[in-house]
Design a protein around this nucleic acid. Structure first.
Length: 202
DNA sequence: AACGGGATGGTT
DNA sequence: ACCATCCCGTTG
């Protein structure tokens, strides 16, 4: 019989950011933001740290844009970039200013809906890349600050699937210019739904 | 008010 | 390699 699913609660997110990023691999992202539910399995994440991480939006100081990053863990931090959006989950304790970026998921359900939203059929590019998955899941800036621990509108679940360390590759972050050396990207090794250069993922 | 860059992604 | 596109933080 299938393993019971469980909504990820605040305690899951209120931990060290790299641990959360690693732990999110294999978890299920579920959106009921539109009329049709969609879901997918997370295959790629990045950690943005509260201290000594110049690539983190909250690195310098608190601004209007990054306000939710300083709020409770388990809330959505959605920011616009290049006329698109990226979806993050706030981590650690209040006032820390850190988050995990969700970079790619493997589509599971609601695929037709995702294909409509993306105006694209190719399953392998439907929700691969942070801005692509936002479009596929109906995530825009109106979602900024939403509590992801409620199991409503947008949330995450574990389904008992265990991701072994041997299946995880840790690399530098994609598209980040500062702190380029830091290994804070977590990706399922050789996964067909991961973004980024293939050689980085194997 | 003006300016420049960006945790992107699609095209050449 | 190029660039569309636009928001945000910084500077004046």
């Amino acid at each position: 019989m299938p393993s019971p699913t469980q909504v990820l609660e605040q305690g899951f997110y209120a931990a060290a950011t790299p641990e959360v990023a690693r732990g999110l691999l294999g978890k299920i992202l579920i959106s009921e933001l539109g009329s049709q539910p969609v879901s997918g399995r997370i295959v790629e994440t990045e950690a943005y740290l509260p201290k000594n991480d110049p690539a983190c939006h909250a690195a310098k100081h608190r601004t209007a844009r990054t306000e939710v990053m300083f709020g409770p863990a388990g809330r959505a931090y959605v920011y616009p970039i290049h006329a698109k959006h990226c979806f993050n989950i706030v981590t650690e304790q209040i006032d820390q200013g850190c988050a995990v970026l969700i970079r790619a998921v493997e589509p599971l359900t609601g695929i037709a809906t995702m294909q409509q939203r993306r105006n694209l059929d190719d399953l392998y590019r439907l929700a691969t890349g942070p801005a692509c998955l936002c479009q596929a899941f109906g995530i825009d800036r109106s979602i900024n600050g939403v509590d992801l621990t409620l199991g409503q509108r947008l949330w995450l679940e574990g389904d008992g699937h265990h991701v072994e360390d041997s299946k995880v590759r840790v690399t530098h972050r994609i598209g980040v210019t500062s702190a380029k050396h830091r290994k804070l990207r977590f990706v399922m090794r050789d996964h067909p739904f991961a973004s980024g250069p293939k050689k980085l993922n194997s």
